[in-house]
């Protein structure tokens, strides 16, 4: 629709994006590891994108690596993140014409994303999410969030706590009170 005109016009054309991704820039984790990433892919991070735009592409390519100082950006997390952006940078444009359908489709992650995010190491999973949030990569935060939600769905509070290693800091009375507050949700009327 007309008020979405900005989205319809989209980004640079695809060839330019593909070409730019051949340019490699260096990203440095909070643990000191330095990793290469295609420019277009790296710019899926709004944090990186803003840096590149303010410093200029030439500066970023030729000088020191971009330092990602947040402690969540561990070597392992950064490697995962680069894997994700290198896969997703040329995703099809968002489909604005089928809003209703989008809701249905959004329920499930793609095959690739499912395999990508289903890591055994929970600490790594949350590092990736926190790092993606810090680097402002909305799509990846969403993938992580959906994955966690698929795990939480249908579980009791106790099961959620066990799965995510959360300590219950409510007293029995407090917990009961919240349960009563929520009673209307379960009531079938």
């Amino acid at each position: 629709m007309a008020d979405n005109a900005d989205h319809i016009d989209g980004d640079d054309n695809e060839d330019v994006r593909a070409q730019q991704n051949l340019i490699k820039i260096k990203l440095k984790s909070s643990e000191g590891g330095i990793y290469e990433c295609g420019l277009t892919a790296a710019k899926m991070s709004d944090l990186v994108k803003n840096m590149v735009e303010s410093l200029g592409t030439d500066a970023v390519v030729t000088t020191e690596p971009i330092i990602l100082g947040n402690e969540a950006v561990t070597d392992a997390a950064l490697k995962k993140i680069i894997e994700w952006v290198e896969f997703h940078w040329d995703d099809p444009p968002v489909d604005h014409d089928f809003e209703d359908e989008k809701d249905r489709r959004n329920e499930e992650l793609s095959h690739w994303d499912k395999q990508f995010i289903d890591v055994d190491d929970q600490a790594l999973l949350f590092d990736v999410i926190a790092a993606a949030n810090y680097m402002d990569i909305k799509g990846l935060v969403e993938v992580g969030a959906k994955h966690i939600c698929s795990k939480i769905r249908g579980k009791s509070c106790q099961e959620v706590r066990e799965m995510l290693k959360i300590t219950n800091d409510f007293t029995a009375e407090e917990e009961d009170a919240i349960h009563k507050e929520n009673a209307w949700i379960y009531a079938k009327d």
């Binding site: 969540a72 929970q122 600490a123 949350f126 590092d127 999410i129 926190a130 949030n133 935060v141 969403e142 992580g144 969030a145 959906k146 966690i148 939600c149 939480i152 769905r153 249908g154 509070c157 959620v160 706590r161 995510l164 290693k165 959360i166 300590t167 219950n168 800091d169 409510f170 917990e175 919240i178 349960h179 929520n182 949700i185």
Partner: peptide, 30 residues
Amino acid sequence: MNINELNDDCLKIVLSFIPFGELLADRRVC
């Protein structure tokens, strides 16, 4: 990292994908 070490904004994004009814129930987690 544990889920509760995520900053609040990030935890909020994660929780926002939980279906509404369950979300209210999950207020009891901690």
